[in-house]
């Protein structure tokens, strides 16, 4: 359990993660409402920002890679994310684009 330790001093990691999350949230809002980009580009960019922010939570706040089972924990989450992407992207693909084809 190499990386797991008791904490000392000021929680820099948490403050850094918190500030970064705020910046990413505001960036997403700016891209959505003020960037003037096409809708598809906006959606692609804000989804990327969402994944960045999710990783901040998982790594900086939840210590995903820590502990004796750190690599297992991370594997579990990556697999969960894989399943989530397959379900969400797959459903949209089949139901939206497939449906349109029939008309």
């Amino acid at each position: 359990m190499a990386q797991t330790q008791n904490e000392k001093g000021f929680p820099w990691k948490h403050v850094f993660g918190f500030l970064l999350s705020i910046v990413l949230t505001l960036m997403a809002v700016w891209i959505a409402f003020s960037s003037g980009l096409p809708a598809k580009t906006i959606i692609a960019l804000i989804v990327i920002l969402a994944f960045c922010q999710a990783f901040i939570q998982l790594v900086l706040f939840m210590h995903m890679n820590e502990g004796a089972n750190g690599s297992w924990q991370a594997t579990m989450i990556y697999y969960g994310i894989y399943i989530a992407i397959v379900i969400v992207a797959g459903s949209i693909w089949v139901m939206t684009f497939g449906h349109q084809h029939h008309h």
Binding site: G80, I83, A84
Partner: peptide, 12 residues
């Protein structure tokens, strides 16, 4: 953590 992986699937 395994439970959280399953929660990802639920919300997906």
């Amino acid at each position: 953590w395994i439970f959280l992986g399953a929660e990802f699937a639920l919300f997906a």
